[in-house]
Every structure is written in structure tokens, then in C-alpha cells.
Design a binder for these strands. Structure first.
Lengths: 244, 244
DNA sequence: CGTTATTTGTGCGTATGTATT
DNA sequence: AAATACATACGCACAAATAAC
């Protein structure tokens, strides 16, 4: 009956996710059992199990046969795995971006140098990123003029407050194919601006990820500096010993 | 090789994983369909779907309704030159390790769970790591009993204050060859103990890296939790779009 | 000590929907 | 239009782990 494009299990998963994030099961109490949820939502037990799968993959809960389902005591959050450039672009799949400072031309010697530009003129845009309606990341993007100028026509980038489900690097990739990226990861204390945007206290540790993207001619086409809230985000990588 | 304790879907998943890593589906060819695998393995289509779930979660394949199942061409393995298991082992080349708490048997439910152990008994050792005589990292290592017990004979691990130029994972690798590792990175505030060991103020942001190493049978053989001083250490990775 | 009830895990069969070819 | 292939959803049965008695 419901015009919901979301399948049943996704609705159940979202409902449970909200309750968990609200702290309804904080004291080690178990979540409702499969049988209970199946009754209250009026679906089969298999559908409830399908909903729990998502929560387990997100490391939001763990399940023990014979006992029940429990929220993880260690901070869960949004986990993404970035092992390749495509993984970075796939970020748009389940997150939305909201413009804080629209795309404009600015003078920034540091950013220009990291982009390998002789001039100090770069195009910059600043935005936050959400998953499940909560902000987990604030990002500043710097682009060389030849990449940034054509993007000035995109209302998603030039309108303050605009929300859209895409990645800057996805747009850049249509102009200049990305071949590789250099990435460095460190920890730092949240400053005044970042703390306000992420909704945390000044001085809170945040994860800082700097990425420089290069096209096939090995010219830098984007510098992205992101600050992540650690309790809402974990950076995950799989490492292999050898290639197939 | 396959143990009868493993469920059917795990056997199918392992079989597919081996074929994928061997490169059987490299040229964009689709994997066998659910119906085909269900016939060849003599199981229901649901069981095949359950096997594919694991591969999708591991981002080894992606599935397209109406088309089929395909291996991701940008697997983590492609970044091996820059962020691989061997890189982690090479850490010993220019750093030294100093034992803070020697290798002992402890009860730790959390560590045991992450190692996939049914029992809570694990072997644990805690140490700092130096580069150029200054500490940049404090690490806690947890090992399953069958790996940890044989290491109790190593004086470098059981003597408080002992300094030596090696990595735990290097030792573990001689007992059980490491095939892959899962790594998650986040930021946190230094607690009392970590702050003292790293020589920083309590509350300072530190980079926390959790790694779980797996052998060729996909059994966890080591959990290492490291805290890095951001001003002395930055984590760098190069990401590639495709193979060079 | 075993017994029993509860809860999750595995596996099967079926039906229907949706996207692709 | 038809066939193919994955997605969702229901039903059922039994196994295994846990906890309470």
C-alpha cells in the first residue's frame, strides 16, 4: 500500500538505526528479538533478519545465538572502505553534500602549491557531508582554474545550502579522467569553524584526510581536505599480500 | 582443506573467492549466475545468494539486476606497492620496539571476538615504537592462543624494557603466512596511559589504527591496536584507478 | 546434572517484482 | 515481446548456542 520505494527490510533497518542512535538500547539491553519485530512490523522473520544484516555490516550491532542482538559498545558510526579511486567516487551512493561556502575564485598560496600551480589563484568550495541525516564530515576542495571555472555553472556547487547526492571528484572526473590519488591521514583537534560544522566541542579529535587527485598526465586536478567526526566515521582499508 | 564445520554458503564463498583471486573473471566476464551455481554445488538459490552476500560486503564483486555478478576491477590489491602487508612488516627496518607489558595470557572478550575466538583467552603484549630515539607510537597486540603460546619463549617479547628491531607480525608470519589484513583508522583523545607512553598531554588527538591480520585460510592471527602521535607520524597511501 | 525454552543460524521451497538483454 | 538475472518477501524445518530451572 505504501508508495515507499524502499523495501520493507530497509524501513525496519532505518527504524532500528534511529532507536539505536537515540540511545534506546544503551545499557547492554538486548534489542527486540526477530520474532518480536516480525510481529510488530507484520513481516516474516526472514525480512527482519535481512534488516539486521545491514546493521551488522555497519558494525552497529552484534548478534549472539541463544542470547540476542546488542548494540556495539565501541563507537560504531559510518564505515567506508577506500582502497581505490572508484571507492572514493562511490561515496555519493549513500551520502549527501551540503554547500557551506559556494564555489568561488580565491587566492591561496598553500593550496596552489599543492596543486602544482605557479599562480595563487584557485577555485574553492566548502561543504559538509551527511549519512542518515547526520553530518559526519566537513570538506574543503581546491581546484585549478581550468577545472574550477567550468564548474561555476553548476547550481549544486554555487548555491549556499544546496544539497545533492554527488562527489566533486565525480564531476571533475568527467572533465579530466582521474588516474591516481595521493592521500595522507592524520589526527588533529577541531577548531572553531570545524567544531560548529560538525556539531562537536572545540578540541575534539577529528580525523583529517588530505587527498590530491591526478589525471592521466599526472597533473593535479583537485585537492580535498576533509575532517571526519571519529564517532560517526571510520576509515577502513583491506590490504592484500599479493595481487591475483 | 574445507572443514565440515563451515556452512555450505561459506564453502561456496571460499571457492568463488579463490577463483576470483586466481583471476578467473578478470576480463569483465560475469561470474556464474545464481541458478548455475545452485546447480553445480547442489544447493538452493538462497544459499548461493548468502555466499554472494559475503563477497559483496568484502567489495570483491558487485551485482547488477538483469546482468549478473562481476568482480570489482579496482580491488584493494591494486594498491599493493604503496599500502600492503609487506609495507607493514617493513616497519622494522628503521624503527625499534620496546616492551612495556610483556607477552602474557589475558582474558579479553572484545579482542577475542575480533579474532573470531569462541573463548575469551588471548595472548597480549604492549609496547612502544621509536624512530630516531623518539617514541611515535604505542601498540597493543592480541594473539590467539595457538599463535601466542609458542611466542612465550621469545625473550624479546617477555622481558620488560627489551628493545629490538622487529615487528610482531613478522614473527607471526613465520608460523602462519599472512594473506591479508583489515585496517580501520580513526582519531581519538590520548588517555592517561597512552599520553604517558607517547609523552604528550592527556586529551591530545592521536591517530588510532586497528589491524586484523588473516592467514591463507582466512583465520585471524593477530589484532594490533596502535596509537600514533600525529606530529611524528602521518599515514600515507597512494590510490590507483587501475593497474599500471 | 540434564531438560527445556528462547534466540539466532542455516537451508530449502515458492512466488512475485524489476532491470537488462 | 520474451528470456534472463538479480531483488524482495513469504513460508517452513531443523541445528546450535545460551540461559534458566
Amino acid at each position: 500500500m505504501s508508495r515507499d520505494r524502499d523495501p520493507e527490510y530497509a524501513i525496519i533497518a532505518r527504524s532500528l538505526r534511529e532507536q539505536i542512535l537515540r540511545g534506546d538500547f544503551e545499557d547492554g539491553r538486548a534489542l527486540p528479538t526477530e520474532a518480536e519485530l516480525s510481529a510488530t512490523f507484520g513481516v516474516s522473520r526472514q525480512t527482519v533478519r535481512r534488516a539486521f544484516q545491514d546493521l551488522v555490516v555497519d558494525r552497529l550491532v552484534y548478534r549472539v545465538p541463544g542470547r540476542g542482538t546488542f548494540v556495539r559498545h565501541d563507537k560504531p558510526g559510518y564505515v567506508r572502505q577506500f582502497g581505490s579511486v572508484s571507492d572514493l567516487m562511490a561515496l555519493a551512493e549513500d551520502t549527501t553534500l551540503q554547500i557551506i561556502e559556494p564555489l568561488t575564485r580565491v587566492l591561496d598560496a598553500g593550496a596552489a602549491e599543492r596543486l602544482g600551480l605557479s599562480d595563487h589563484s584557485v577555485y574553492s568550495v566548502h561543504f559538509t557531508r551527511r549519512h542518515d541525516e547526520s553530518v559526519f564530515c566537513a570538506t574543503s576542495v581546491y581546484l585549478p582554474p581550468d577545472i574550477g571555472l567550468p564548474l561555476m555553472g553548476e547550481p549544486e556547487l554555487t548555491t549556499v545550502g544546496a544539497r545533492s547526492p554527488f562527489t566533486i571528484i565525480g564531476r571533475v572526473d568527467t572533465h579530466a579522467a582521474i588516474a591516481r590519488a595521493e592521500q595522507s591521514i592524520t589526527a588533529e583537534a577541531a577548531g572553531l569553524i570545524i567544531a560548529r560544522e560538525l556539531g562537536c566541542v572545540v578540541g575534539t579529535p577529528v580525523l583529517r584526510v588530505d587527498r590530491v587527485y591526478f589525471d592521466s598526465s599526472d597533473h593535479a586536478v583537485e585537492l580535498a581536505i576533509s575532517r571526519f567526526l571519529p564517532e560517526r566515521y571510520t576509515y577502513r582499508i583491506n590490504l592484500m599480500r599479493s595481487t591475483p
